[in-house]
Amino acid sequence: MYDPKKARARRERLNLSVAQFAARAGVSERAVYAYEAGDRTPSVDVFTRMATALRVPFRSLLKQTRNDAEFAELYGAEMTRRKHPAAEVISTHEDAANTLLVDRIRAVRKESGRG
């Protein structure tokens, strides 16, 4: 789901050191090294903070996935983060498509009795 190569590539494109990125994302440098090496997977909260620190929509840091439930969880966390007054809003043309996907997931889960 999380693609460490994409996160590192974006950090390097922004010319951010590990220390700078860690400070922006609110994690330790050690954690950044572990996330970028693929040794650890960030929590949903950390993941959205990383996307904010890299100034990209969180979806751009994902591997291609067919697991709609995982995407729905991340999308929900992103929407919660956007409502927080101190958070920087990430707005892209993908937002409408993402909303449609989440609505589709909810409909399928409701039909199957899982949500």
Score class of each variant (00 low, 15 high):
residue 107 A to E: 05
residue 4 P to M: 07
residue 1 M to R: 04
residue 1 M to D: 06
residue 61 L to S: 06
residue 94 E to D: 14
residue 8 R to M: 10
residue 78 E to N: 05
residue 105 I to S: 02
residue 80 T to W: 03
residue 86 A to K: 04
residue 81 R to N: 07
residue 100 L to R: 04
residue 51 A to S: 10
residue 45 D to E: 13
residue 93 H to M: 02
residue 108 V to T: 12
residue 9 A to E: 15
residue 14 L to S: 11
residue 22 A to E: 11
residue 3 D to H: 07
residue 33 Y to H: 07
residue 13 R to F: 15
residue 75 Y to I: 01
residue 25 A to H: 11
residue 56 V to G: 12
residue 10 R to S: 06
residue 60 S to D: 14
residue 113 G to P: 09
residue 64 Q to W: 09
residue 44 V to S: 13
residue 68 D to A: 11
residue 42 P to M: 04
residue 82 R to E: 08
residue 9 A to W: 09
residue 52 T to C: 08
residue 102 V to C: 05
residue 22 A to Q: 11
residue 73 E to C: 02
residue 15 N to I: 13
residue 87 A to L: 01
residue 63 K to V: 08
residue 87 A to G: 01
residue 45 D to R: 04
residue 53 A to D: 15
residue 52 T to H: 12
residue 21 F to T: 10
residue 109 R to S: 13
residue 10 R to L: 15
residue 16 L to Q: 13
residue 111 E to Q: 10
residue 94 E to N: 04
residue 47 F to C: 01
residue 64 Q to Y: 11
residue 30 R to N: 11
residue 19 A to D: 14
residue 112 S to Q: 12
residue 104 R to I: 03
residue 12 E to D: 13
residue 40 R to T: 10
residue 51 A to Q: 05
residue 19 A to W: 04
residue 102 V to K: 04
residue 113 G to H: 08
residue 83 K to I: 02
residue 51 A to N: 05
residue 7 A to N: 08
residue 8 R to N: 13
residue 90 I to K: 04
residue 39 D to P: 01
residue 67 N to Q: 07
residue 46 V to K: 06
residue 42 P to I: 05
residue 7 A to E: 09
residue 34 A to V: 05
residue 87 A to T: 01
residue 11 R to Y: 14
residue 77 A to H: 10
residue 82 R to W: 09
residue 113 G to V: 09
residue 66 R to G: 14
residue 45 D to I: 08
residue 11 R to N: 10
residue 109 R to E: 15
residue 94 E to L: 12
residue 54 L to D: 04
residue 36 E to L: 07
residue 2 Y to H: 01
residue 55 R to P: 02
residue 39 D to V: 13
residue 10 R to V: 12
residue 36 E to H: 10
residue 32 V to N: 03
residue 115 G to N: 07
